[in-house]
């Protein structure tokens, strides 16, 4: 393989180009310190999150504690989804719905099987209110990345406590070693005359259930 000599050459050129330059102070600063939030703050953040996700033309349901299974059943029924992918580690009570068949990813489903499924139900790792973003880290209740990519419908459950105000806060909650997928609304393109069209290769429909804390 080529590239060994180039490594040293590139590094030498960089050192020559930057030799003698004064140091640049750390500009980004430390991440915002995590702090305890009141229930009311958590609810307000969740409401902002919901509004921002709706701006991307996704459907959002805010539900009371324990309301997730009913909301899942309602959403799947409304969508008419019969065969729904269920990643490992999902809370057992979430997959709900009359006549819905939940497909486990054990053994791993093939790409064709995922493509043929009606949808996928997941949780998330964290979410951002300001930008209406859900972050998946392929952990428990989320599954490997293909699970939320190939089915045309993604139903995602977000617990209000997982929602942080902004992007700087969410980075501190994530593990860079894991594969991360940030999702802000359904897939979209503006490549034709800058007209926005929702739904290209990723799931064309995103539906979100936000479980609020007890008040």
């Amino acid at each position: 393989m080529t590239g060994r000599g180039s490594r040293e050459r590139i590094l030498a050129r960089i050192r020559a180009a930057t030799a003698g330059l004064p140091p640049v102070p750390d500009a980004a600063g430390p991440p915002p310190a995590p702090r305890e939030r009141t229930e009311a703050e958590i609810v307000r953040t969740a409401e902002l999150f919901a509004a921002r996700v709706r701006d991307y033309r996704a459907t959002v349901h805010l539900v009371a504690p324990g309301g997730v299974p009913a909301a899942v059943a309602g959403a799947l029924a409304g969508r008419g989804a019969r065969r729904v992918v269920r990643p490992g580690g999902l809370p057992v009570e979430w997959p709900a719905g009359d006549g819905v068949e939940f497909l486990a990813d054990e053994p791993p489903l093939t790409a064709a099987e995922l493509d043929a499924a009606d949808g996928v139900l997941t949780g998330c790792a964290a979410a951002v209110a300001e930008t209406g973003t859900i972050v998946l880290d392929a952990g428990a209740g989320q599954g490997r990345r293909a699970l939320t990519l190939l089915p045309d419908y993604h139903l995602c459950v977000v617990r209000a406590g997982q929602i942080v105000p902004g992007v700087p806060e969410v980075l501190g909650r994530l593990d860079p070693a894991r594969p991360l997928t940030w999702i802000s609304g359904p897939s979209a393109t503006s490549d034709i005359e800058l007209d926005r069209v929702e739904g290209v290769h990723g799931p064309r429909t995103l539906e979100v259930i936000v479980e609020l804390p007890a008040v």
Binding site: R52, T131, G132, V167, P179, L180, I183, S184, G202
Partner: peptide
């Protein structure tokens, strides 16, 4: 954080682009 706030708004005007993938 700085660039995930700067880039989408500068580029498409969105608060955030639909998908961002990160891997190590």
């Amino acid at each position: 954080a700085v660039f995930l706030e700067l880039l989408p708004r500068s580029s498409t005007g969105e608060r955030m682009n639909p998908y961002t993938s990160m891997w190590t």
